[in-house]
Design a protein around this nucleic acid. Sequence first.
DNA 1: ATTTATCGTGCAATTTCGTGCAATGTCAAG
DNA 2: CTTGACATTGCACGAAATTGCACGATAAAT
Lengths: 260, 260
Amino acid sequence: MSSIVVKDNMLTTHRKQQILALLKSQGQVVAKDVSRQMGVSEDTIRRDLRELAQEGLLQRVHGGALPSSPAIADFAGRERLTPDGKSAIGRAAALMVQPGQVVILDGGTTARQLARHLPADLRATIVTHSPTIAIELIHHPEIEVILIGGRLFKHSVVAMGAAALESIANIRADTFFMGVTGVHPRAGLTTGDFEEAAIKRALSHAAAETFVLASSEKLNAASPYSVVPLAEISGIITESSTDPALTEPFEKLRIPVIRA
Amino acid sequence: MSSIVVKDNMLTTHRKQQILALLKSQGQVVAKDVSRQMGVSEDTIRRDLRELAQEGLLQRVHGGALPSSPAIADFAGRERLTPDGKSAIGRAAALMVQPGQVVILDGGTTARQLARHLPADLRATIVTHSPTIAIELIHHPEIEVILIGGRLFKHSVVAMGAAALESIANIRADTFFMGVTGVHPRAGLTTGDFEEAAIKRALSHAAAETFVLASSEKLNAASPYSVVPLAEISGIITESSTDPALTEPFEKLRIPVIRA
DNA sequence: ATTTATCGTGCAATTTCGTGCAATGTCAAG
DNA sequence: CTTGACATTGCACGAAATTGCACGATAAAT
């Protein structure tokens, strides 16, 4: 008897990843089979399939699911899902990077999503003050990584301080993808640490264009420290499911809003 | 009974490192399980997971956490125990660091061992051009980490280039712990990459004392590019099992050899 | 056309989350 | 030694997420 159900803890995100892995190796998945194999009800698997289809990672069919496209199948195998599907922002932003460009990446989870979704054949230069993002990009075959040094801020694991500001002053980049804790029509871009705000401001000024990566809960929120006013940014990238009422104040100010 | 809870002083930093180690070895961590295993409440584990996620070292999901990316998991987790004597070398070198000192750490596996063995209550400043070592030290409660930036050399994952050299020029440290590929009585300290040699040379000149971390197979070996002559270093640290015949040429040159 | 399998939704039970709060421990200044 | 500021931890409680089941709708199959 080979199919003894191993009934141990399985995190829900991990289950979805395994479904994607199954899909990649077998070319299709059947809801009933998967449910038995993973020891959960069919309803749960169906919900997973629905959500994965919503993210475009597979294609629903009666009885189970198929890869959404052959190209995605490879990609989806190594995809690391975010609990809420916010990788769409990173994916969309990654597609904005043109070959040969010099791009500054902020620290934070959203920028990490961006790094993860850079096409494998994209030749570009990524500048970052986040050692974790730098390491993330180490295995990319074509990307050149410039690490900004400085005193390491333990809370968010990014380089800060005078040394970092000095290094940034020597950089002229095409685009800066910034993460913030608040994007507010009047307060502009804000964050929760004073020195961090200064770094983000310097990075923004070092790039010709600045785009803000902001999931919906960041919109119309404000934190204590101001980074730059809204007028200085080229656009806001948010997820497609964001309520239009949340983006409307920014569109009224003629700030382009890109929905991923 | 295997699950005897080891109820000794568990510094919060060590707990986080253990969580990362678990995550690396198991591919996932479940909050409830970890809390039982470590003898603290689930709330505490959840707090740890939140903070680690904030630092980008793992990815929070309902019920526990997953690696933030395969690359980070490789570096952030404690790896298999000491394949060789490098751990002992690192431990011995770590004990040489005095409170309040400013110490430069080279890249490479031996230096990483050193970073791991720094006493939990040691207050000091560590300067490094290796993002992996920087991340390793992030959870140390007392260590201040200065990261040297620059173009990231993909092979050994350290910052190099003009920017790195410039940053180093501004540093005056007490000790530099250097890793090399060869320590030879006549050729001196050598390594396999030209630019890397320049960086090591600069780091060495930025410190009052330089110690070489060299496992036995590095002794009496030489690589193409010279870093500094033997006369400029304060000592060689090697494992205790090293054949005395290998160290004898250096002792004859009055270079102190420390056996770990 | 009828039968069977699959699907989607509402709903309730359970688990997990996040925050406020109090108790304890640490450390440094007085 | 004492005191007070601060960090860490555990507990309580309301909020949110996950899951399985019931039931009507839909799609496939004979």
